[in-house]
Simulated assay, not measured.
Amino acid sequence: MSLTIHHLHLSQSDRILWLCEELSIPYTLKTYNRDKQTSLSPESYKELHPIGTAPIIQEGSITLGETNAIFEYILTKYGQGRLVLSPDHPNYADYVFWLHHVQGTLQPALNSTLTASEGDMMGQVMKARLNRSLDMMNSQLKTNEYIAGDEFTAADCMMMFPLTTFRLFVPFSLEEYPFIVEYLHRISEREGYRVAMEKADPGLARPITAVVNLNK
C-alpha cells in the first residue's frame, strides 16, 4: 500500500508533505486548487472525507483527516522513533505540549482574532490568548534551537504553517518576537522543508520575516 497525500494549495496540508520528507517516507501527492470564487476547497476535495477539510491522507482502505491524527498515524506507523521524544526524555513534556499547542490554541486564536470585528469581546479574549502564545514561543526559542529543545521534532513540523503560509491570507507582524523570526529562518533552510514546500506550492514565497510584504 502506498500513502497518498491530498494537498489543498495554500493550506496546512503542506506540513504533511514536510513530515514525510523529513522521515524519507515515499508518498503519492495529489494537489487541488482552491475555488476561484470562494477560495475554499473544491467539491472534489470535500468529497474525500466527511470532515471535508485539509489535510487528508489515504492508504489502502483508510482515509484520514485532521492534522494531529495524521501526524500520529505517520509517526507511529513509519517513524520508527524518529522526530519524537520518548517519555523518559527531559524535554518530553515540551514536545507533547508544542505538538498539540498549534492546533489547540495558536491557530484557533489566529482564526478568531484576525477575522473578528472591532469591539468583539471574544475577539479580544482570543487576541490575548494569541499574544500569550507568541510570548511563550518566543521565550522558548530564546534558549532553544528548536521548539521542544535542542532536537528537531515533529512539533517543529507542526509549527511553521501558522507563522508562514497562514500570513499570506491575513498578514500579521512578528516584530516583537525576534527569536521566532530567527527560528523561521533556521527551519526554512532545512532540505526537507524546502523540498516539501516546493512540491506543495511551486514557486510560492512563504514569509519568514518579521513583517509580511505581499508586494514582493
Results as ranks from 00 to 15, higher is better:
2 S>C: 11
11 S>D: 01
12 Q>I: 08
14 D>Q: 12
15 R>H: 14
24 S>N: 14
27 Y>A: 04
31 T>E: 01
33 N>E: 15
37 Q>H: 15
41 S>N: 04
46 K>W: 15
51 I>E: 13
59 E>V: 04
60 G>D: 08
60 G>Q: 11
60 G>K: 03
61 S>I: 14
65 G>C: 09
69 A>M: 06
73 Y>E: 10
74 I>F: 01
76 T>I: 03
82 R>W: 02
84 V>W: 01
84 V>T: 09
85 L>A: 08
87 P>V: 00
90 P>Y: 05
90 P>M: 11
91 N>M: 03
95 Y>H: 07
97 F>K: 14
97 F>I: 11
102 V>M: 03
109 A>E: 11
111 N>I: 15
114 L>V: 08
115 T>A: 09
116 A>P: 05
116 A>M: 07
117 S>W: 05
119 G>P: 12
119 G>L: 08
121 M>Y: 12
122 M>V: 04
132 R>P: 01
132 R>A: 13
135 D>A: 06
135 D>M: 09
148 A>V: 01
153 T>E: 04
155 A>P: 09
157 C>G: 04
161 F>W: 12
164 T>N: 01
168 L>W: 06
168 L>D: 13
171 P>R: 09
173 S>P: 10
177 Y>W: 15
181 V>L: 02
183 Y>G: 00
193 Y>W: 15
193 Y>L: 09
203 G>K: 09
204 L>F: 03
209 T>K: 12
215 N>H: 13
216 K>L: 15
